[in-house]
Computed example of a mutant assay.
Amino acid sequence: MLSYRKTLWALVIVANLAAASGVQAQYETVFPAANQPFTDVNLENYDFQWFAPPITEQYGQDTIDPNTGIFFEYHRLFMNVSRSDVAPGPYDGDATYGNRIDVGYMTEDNHGWLISGWRLDGPAYNGVNRGDFNSIELDRTWRLPQFHQGFYIEPLMGLRYAQFNDKTSTINFVQNNMLLGQLGGRIFSHRGQWTLEGTVRAFGGQNWIFRGDQDSYSAGVAGGEFSLGAAYHITREISIDVAWETMYIGTGVGRDPFFNNDEDMTMTGVAFGFTLNR
């Protein structure tokens, strides 16, 4: 009986593996690289010419298409971070600096991936508003056909991990660990040597809050991120740009080191940097 059961299970496993292989092969035929998303990054087909003259024609006209291939962005952030509800001047905010890096790719089939991370090193005002913020996200992206007046839309869907450490109190600190799902998109249009663009993300998830060694609990989090900016192309694939960047978390942020409060939080300011091949 034991030998029979072993033989039966072996046949079941082999049959399932064979069926799974057939389904996977069919799935990859319809959606190439669906299970291996980075196999379609073929660098040999991308004609990188970093110092070629900038494109001045409008995207979508005269066979001029938006860039494809790997891209990279760096921005220096100058942000204002809101204070806790229990801090002096709770409706005020305080300035800080940070960095943001975006890297990803867009294929000629109009789909790709985006990894985005940013960090704020402050604010740094003891007893009023002190802390730091980190965020990393992974998004699946698509590029839709051209819209009216040469605009393109790139929807995105992904996951984000964000951490805010409130160190305002000299007695204890509050650490927020947020795991978020998000939806959003990027819209852009090329005019002359300028690219006008905007991005929007809406996110929600769970926040695990640790108040030093005193207490820990969790809360729901919801909010969004918005930016609007312009890029000037120095060459075909190198541009400098500036944008207004805002992130708002509407609920679920722990800041007061003594009470289990759920606060909102706003970070807004200017991002200035450069972009390669986007």
Rank of each mutant, 00 (worst) to 15 (best):
R255C: 01
Y4K: 14
D92H: 10
G185Q: 06
T63V: 08
S218H: 12
F71A: 10
L183K: 05
D241F: 04
F258D: 02
G60N: 06
W9K: 14
Q182Y: 06
S169W: 00
Y105A: 03
D85A: 13
N177Q: 13
N35S: 14
W244Y: 15
T39E: 13
Y59I: 04
V81K: 04
Q58V: 11
R201S: 11
P88A: 12
G229Q: 07
A34C: 09
F272E: 08
T63S: 14
F258K: 03
L276D: 08
M79P: 07
T199D: 15
R5D: 14
A95C: 07
R143S: 04
N165L: 13
R186W: 00
D213G: 07
L43Q: 13
D62W: 10
F164M: 08
F164T: 06
R83F: 04
L114I: 09
G122Y: 08
A87M: 03
V41D: 05
V14G: 11
G212S: 05
I55H: 01
L180P: 02
G60D: 04
F48R: 12
G252Q: 05
I101R: 05
Y125F: 14
R255S: 07
F259Y: 13
R236P: 05
I171C: 08
Y59W: 15
F210Q: 15
L8G: 06
I55K: 00
D47K: 15
K167S: 07
G98L: 02
A124L: 09
P145K: 08
G254H: 09
D65R: 10
S227Y: 02
M178P: 04
L276V: 13
E225S: 13
K167H: 06
A95D: 14
Y161D: 13
G205V: 01
G273K: 03
L183F: 14
R100T: 00
A19D: 09
I136W: 09
L17F: 12
H111I: 03
S3I: 09
L156M: 15
T56D: 10
I234Y: 14
L2F: 08
S116K: 00
T168C: 04
G117R: 04
F226R: 00
R119C: 03
T63I: 07
P88N: 12
L8M: 11
R186K: 09
N261W: 03
I136N: 00
S169V: 05
T7C: 10
R236Q: 15
D132P: 00
P66K: 04
G220M: 11
V86C: 08
S216Y: 09
P257L: 08
P66W: 05
L276T: 10
S82K: 09
L156G: 06
S3F: 10
G220F: 15
W208C: 03
P257V: 01
Q206R: 14
G98Q: 02
G122Q: 11
H190E: 11
E225A: 11
R255H: 07
Q149A: 11
L276Y: 12
T56Q: 10
T29S: 11
